[in-house]
Amino acid sequence: MGIRAPLVRYMAALAVRNRLTGLLFLFAVVLSGTALILTWLTPGTERRTFYDLAYLGLEFLAVATPILASTAIHVLEFDQRTVWLVLVRPVTRPGYTWGRFWGVTGAAWVNLSLASLLVGALALLLRALPEPWFVGVVVAAFLESLVIGALSCLVAFVTTSFVTALVVNGGIVLLGYLTPTLHAAVARSGNAALRLAGDTVYWVLPHLADFSVREFTRPAEGWYLTLLAIYALAWTGAALAAATAVFLKREV
């Protein structure tokens, strides 16, 4: 398949150097800082307020970084045709797909690692450690960015412009989050067509809400995280295989 380290580095550099990625990290810093400030406004529940908002920031980064990094690269490569410069070298299309995926996901993981360290440091400042949710939330965020990275790669190869890619990615994320709730709601309705639509969406899209372990009333157990990892890897595999199949047929 030829996964090439230089290609991964090239893609990661494109993603990390991108202003949008930097802006997102800045947003995560601001959100974590705001979480710390808001603890002053919520006497009695300082820990809860801080962690709720900080974890929300981590999950936001896990979703938004791969999407924005991927669509930003999309502009450069497909709209400005720089993808030709890469493909004239001895790089296979599957190799390119993997390189692109790991580059984008790597950039998201750099952002997530920095943000997780920041949350940990701020928690120390607040003397709010240890927090049993922390490890589960960080692991789930990394896994979620893996899935989103692969899906955004597929979307980039299917769509033809930056705007379409952004809209389709946004739609997938929105429906992916709403899917379990939507499915439960339509399952109660008597309308067969509605139930069929709900079932279809349920089986076709990833259930991103399952990655929100921060919302649980109890910390996620090890086996839940293991199953989540299997789920994330299966979705990543499916999306990357589909992306490769599409890219093999696409004219650039």
């Binding site: 990833p206 299966a234 979705w235 499916a238």
Partner: peptide, 13 residues
């Protein structure tokens, strides 16, 4: 690749 995608998709389901 389409067959691999189908297998992974079933596993994800």
């Amino acid at each position: 690749y389409p067959a691999a995608a189908a297998v992974f998709f079933a596993a994800a389901g």
